[in-house]
Design a protein around this nucleic acid. Sequence first.
DNA 1: CCTTTATGCGAGTATGGCTCATGTTAACGG
DNA 2: CCGTTAACATGAGCCATACTCGCATAAAGG
Lengths: 212, 212
Amino acid sequence: MTSTLRRRPAQRRSVERVERMLDECALLLDEVGYEALTTKEVARRAEVPIGTFYQFFHDKQGLVRALALRNLEAFLQRITQRIAEADLGHWTDLVDLAIDEFVDMKRTTPGFAVVDFGEVLPTPGGPPLEGTKRTLDSALDNNVIVADRLRALTLALLDAPAGPGLDRALVVAVEATDAVLKLAFRADPGGDADLIAECKQLVRRYLADHLP
Amino acid sequence: MTSTLRRRPAQRRSVERVERMLDECALLLDEVGYEALTTKEVARRAEVPIGTFYQFFHDKQGLVRALALRNLEAFLQRITQRIAEADLGHWTDLVDLAIDEFVDMKRTTPGFAVVDFGEVLPTPGGPPLEGTKRTLDSALDNNVIVADRLRALTLALLDAPAGPGLDRALVVAVEATDAVLKLAFRADPGGDADLIAECKQLVRRYLADHLP
DNA sequence: CCTTTATGCGAGTATGGCTCATGTTAACGG
DNA sequence: CCGTTAACATGAGCCATACTCGCATAAAGG
């Protein structure tokens, strides 16, 4: 499996350049959207020659995937951080916390409203082969990674044993959350408060089948 | 508001041509995905000169939007049909029916697995203007139309008065359903059965707050 | 039959993704 | 300190694609 990056930036300057490219990519996504974003413009704004751009990123999608990955890591970082600070009594608090943090990133992190953890790109490079049945964990969908992390956090919170369907349920919950929050931000750039509340309710009801 | 079509096909031949272009678009989407789909190839396969293509469709996105609209109409058609045939006792039956029909279209209708009702396209033509708060019904998201139609059907089924939050809840439900089913088809080209079941469960639990 | 108006057409333009030949810097051995 | 070699940097240019525009053709109307 090829990494998201074509070449890993070794020297300090390279790291900064990659970072700058991701930053500009994020800003441009907010400004013009994915389709209208051009690699030339990203390179120009980041003050990186186009040739260098392609030393680090496979292609335009690779750029966005890398940004999505950075977003994912930032999100997980923030969540673990906040959980450590204010420890919660009930698993529903964790739901609220995760959603609140997600919403906050939608508002404050450039580009996050457009790509969050990726998965915007419609079938990257052809359709899935016929007869291919990927298991859930082999599907390297970033939302699955989020679900996985949340499962670990949940199990740490309540030391009850995991019901068998928990992991599947969490993947479903994360996917649904993602969709409803996207809706909330489509309806209102600041995030429709009512829809955010509904989102929490949706997840709580559903997960109540699998958690005490 | 400009229609999805640049010019409405008047004569019989034109109607057939537009239909053929949509058909080929659907097939191509299954074969190569959205990004790799080219307007030239669609025109070539549909045996329509490229100039004519652009008489009917604004651009590549317009083509896909038109297909999504056709999918939407087909779906609503099928649903109302099937409801008329086997009339159901409980609103949960309607949930099942709608999801089953959606799944069936994913399996049988070309291109449906890729675009279904649209909304794949990341920010079509720039970001939403700052401070713009569209109401839910003015957001012409196709899923909202689905939700609207389902609300009418639900209210016809049980003549109970609509709770105030019902329409919002249905939009949320449809959005979540869409996401989880996309997941189900990402995990398995034929649609992961367990995930489909979970999807129904998710919606039932959530809507139980708003329906008897 | 001629005028006017709508429709059909595809060569051509603009632009964007991406490469590759060449120049530049670093790494290392003697 | 120099020479050799390998890694990295660069941007002019290549190719493909979305989309246009002026002319050809057909239909409508008188």
